[in-house]
């Protein structure tokens, strides 16, 4: 049973990081119906900013972590203002193509820095001795990662449900014209959605970077890695991102723990989530918690 519980704990850890990474996609899609393909680059950028502020500037890592989220908040908001604001009302495919271009630009910018081609790791700021309970262990890095993820997701959920701006964002998501007719500034909402996605991406980047080390390739690829989570959860659901993240994390760990290496199987941990995703989408095409829109024609 210890083995089973270890897999559960590992699955939840991985799943919650997936959820936080997926959150950026959801926040933008929820308000603007746009998929930001450059999300992985923002995740990587956030992690690099934390490192730069900690090691090059000398700030305490906790301060750098918060500062990084503030910086990416404004950076993402600027990106929306400069590149995407003009595309409001244009076909969605045009906007997605712009985000692909944005990915190239961000790649180029990061390659101009040492982070583009060199590997780094955060200075150790947490105890290296893991926490063990009944033979099940979790590292401090993982535990802190899960706690931060829970806090951020809780804060975003509250924001969308209770705050005036959050409710405005949901209104824009439901019907842009109706939202405008009651005085909500749609461009402002879009900017804010990007900014919040940037903030969550920085948080995710710092957590992932602390686990894998700071390698641009690994961090940048994470935007695509979590894509099945976003689809499974339903593109516009925060709860969906959390549930799907944890489902994916658990599936991967159980596949690695019980299938891989047995009966000639290998790599099922990478493939099985996609198979399950396909099966679920057959029955729930909008994902587990996605909005099912019925249009009258």
């Amino acid at each position: 049973m210890t083995y089973f519980f270890q897999l559960v704990v590992s699955g939840i850890v991985v799943g919650s990081i997936y959820a936080l990474s997926a959150l950026g996609f959801v926040l933008i899609y929820k308000s603007s119906r746009v998929l930001n393909i450059a999300h992985g680059q923002i995740i990587a950028g956030g992690a690099f900013i934390v490192y730069a502020l900690t090691v090059f500037v000398g700030l305490p890592i906790y301060v750098s972590f918060v500062a990084s989220m503030v910086i990416t908040f404004f950076l993402a908001m600027s990106v929306e203002r400069i590149f995407l604001r003009r595309l409001i009302g244009e076909p969605i495919i045009s906007v997605i193509m712009v985000t692909i271009g944005l990915m190239s630009i961000l790649n180029g910018v990061i390659y101009l820095t040492p982070f583009g081609s060199l590997n780094y790791s955060f200075p150790e700021f947490l105890p290296t001795t893991p926490i063990s309970l009944g033979g099940v262990s979790i590292s401090w890095t993982q535990l802190v990662g899960v706690i931060i993820t829970a806090l951020l997701i809780g804060a975003f959920s509250w924001f969308f449900k209770r705050s005036t701006i959050g409710i405005s964002m949901r209104a824009v998501s439901d019907d842009q014209f109706a939202a405008m007719s009651v005085g909500i500034s749609v461009p402002r909402v879009f900017g804010l959605a990007w900014a919040m996605a940037g903030l969550s991406a920085a948080g995710a980047g710092a957590i992932i970077g602390n686990i894998t080390g700071l390698n641009f390739e690994t961090l940048g690829a994470f935007g695509i890695t979590v894509f099945p989570v976003v689809i499974l959860g339903g593109l516009d659901s925060i709860v969906g991102a959390v549930v799907a993240g944890i489902i994916m994390g658990l599936i991967q760990q159980f596949a690695a723990g019980y299938l891989d290496g047995n009966w000639g199987l290998n790599g099922t941990a990478d493939v099985l989530p996609y198979i399950i995703l396909l099966v679920i989408l057959l029955f729930k095409p909008h994902g587990l918690f996605g909005t099912h829109e019925i249009e009258r024609v």
Binding site: Y3, S10, V14, A256, G261, N266, A269, D270
Partner: peptide, 21 residues
């Protein structure tokens, strides 16, 4: 065992499986 790795964030399952063998 031969393990072709993916982009894993946690290798607990793999390591424990290998140890058990």
């Amino acid at each position: 065992e031969v393990v072709e790795h993916g982009k894993d964030l946690d290798n607990s399952a793999l390591l424990q499986r290998l140890a058990s063998k």
